[in-house]
Write a protein that binds this DNA or RNA. Structure first.
Lengths: 142, 142
DNA sequence: CATCAATAGTTGACGTATCAATTGTTGATA
DNA sequence: TATCAACAATTGATACGTCAACTATTGATG
């Protein structure tokens, strides 16, 4: 089965395939979805934020943010509260429970990424990073 | 807003963000989803295949394959037929219509990938390709 | 001060991917 | 030949992400 894709096209295919595989595997390995993890981990660092800055940090649609946070609140990982000075915004913060659990997830995540990037040198890591960033920039205004 | 992620973790984040952006943009630019495109394009090359080999080529879940092909059949891009020698398999092939349309999509796709990889040298393309392949291998048995 | 554009968050509709379970068929083997 | 494991395709449940439309609030400008 020959492949008539150009090099460029192959990269698109690879990218798609890789990230389709990552999500389920990440969750199986760590016990949490990668989006949820990023939300929690960001909260871990900043203590308290409103949703829209959280949205920018994690870079997924705000509709998805709302739904994730609602579920994380049900799960007791997160509390949401209104702020008096501006009734539009809702602040989000980790609960004690969430703060504790995130540490376990973090460990599993590190194990996961280390497996994935197991044989990568420091230089290679830098290279992929900048390349992925360049791709992102190149399509950012489409 | 400082970022306490390790280099490895950033790559995961980038990968996710990139591929989340790619899918909607690809569809806006080309007029077809990237999965559908890959299915059609593969069919264009092989003339006729059964679904499971198509599934392996495109590398998405067989449930998704079934649904895509059903819709593509409704859209008149594809025909599915049974084979006498083995009643389990269904063969898929492009219609004339599909065969014509894929060419237009192909052009738009090439334009899209060229934009995304606009400033990449041949060496860089090779490098990303092998790196993405390595990552895929590294997580393949998780 | 009234109006109106901008902002924060939410909801609904939709597309797509996964996994698990199911149906129907085939082929090997006891 | 009857049984049973393997296989192809399908379906149902679930999760995630996007976009577009909507609500409520805020703040600036006439």
């Amino acid at each position: 089965m020959t492949c008539l894709f150009s090099d460029q096209e192959k990269i698109l295919h690879l990218l798609k395939g890789l990230s389709n595989q990552i999500n389920p595997k990440f969750e199986r390995c760590t016990g949490i979805s990668s989006s949820r993890y990023e939300l929690l981990y960001h909260l871990y660092q900043v203590d308290e934020v409103n949703q829209s800055t959280l949205q920018k940090a994690v870079n997924i649609d705000s509709a998805a943010i709302t739904r994730h946070l609602k579920q994380l609140e049900v799960d007791g990982m997160v509390v949401r509260s209104k702020i008096a000075s501006d009734n539009r915004v809702t602040l989000v913060r980790l609960t004690e429970e969430g703060r504790n659990r995130i540490l376990g997830y973090k460990e599993e995540k590190v194990r996961f990424v280390n497996t994935m990037l197991n044989d990568f040198s420091k230089e290679e890591l830098d290279m992929v990073t900048t390349m992925l960033n360049r791709m992102q920039n190149n399509i950012s205004e489409l």
